[in-house]
């Protein structure tokens, strides 16, 4: 009997959620209230605020003179647990910093978003501060970002 009573109570809880949410959401839907009641974030139109320290896509920074901050030291590639950073270094003939990356690829399809690369970088050349979570592609290869894509904010 106790069980039966508990079962009824359970029904009560779900019914309460249902009715309260229905009421709040209906008011919201017709524009009478700003409280949605439900927790759903309707993603493409609504977005949750990203936190300042969230780690999303990488960005390569530039120096004041326009040169990439990166000196192709491979620290990030060394630290990367997913081994998804590919760098090819070259001589930078005109700059006092002798070395620069000719190619800098990050395979975001493999990246674990751990942020070790950011921690490892001695030049503050790489950050994960592009607050854009969308990374869907139809081809895996499109997820391999090169310098051009990585420097875009």
């Amino acid at each position: 009997m106790k069980l039966f009573w508990e079962a009824i109570k359970g029904l009560g809880i779900t019914a309460r959620h249902l009715i309260v949410n229905l009421w709040k959401f209906s008011l919201y839907y017709v524009g009478l209230s700003r409280d949605k009641g439900v927790v759903t974030v309707e993603y493409p139109e609504e977005r949750r605020e990203t936190f300042p320290r969230v780690r999303l896509r990488h960005r390569l920074l530039r120096r004041e003179d326009g040169r990439l901050r990166c000196v192709a030291c491979f620290m990030c590639a060394t630290a990367c647990p997913a081994e998804c950073i590919y760098i090819e270094a070259e001589e930078d003939p005109d700059h006092p910093l002798e070395k620069r990356p000719r190619q800098f690829l990050i395979d975001l399809g493999k990246c674990a978003y751990c942020g070790f690369c950011v921690e490892a970088c001695p030049e503050d050349a790489i950050r994960m501060d592009v607050h854009i979570p969308e990374l869907a592609e139809y081809e895996r290869d499109n997820l391999i970002y090169d310098i051009e894509k990585l420097t875009k904010k």
Partner: peptide
């Protein structure tokens, strides 16, 4: 120079 130094 360690980041750009081949000896590193």
């Amino acid at each position: 120079d360690c980041p750009i130094c081949d000896q590193a």
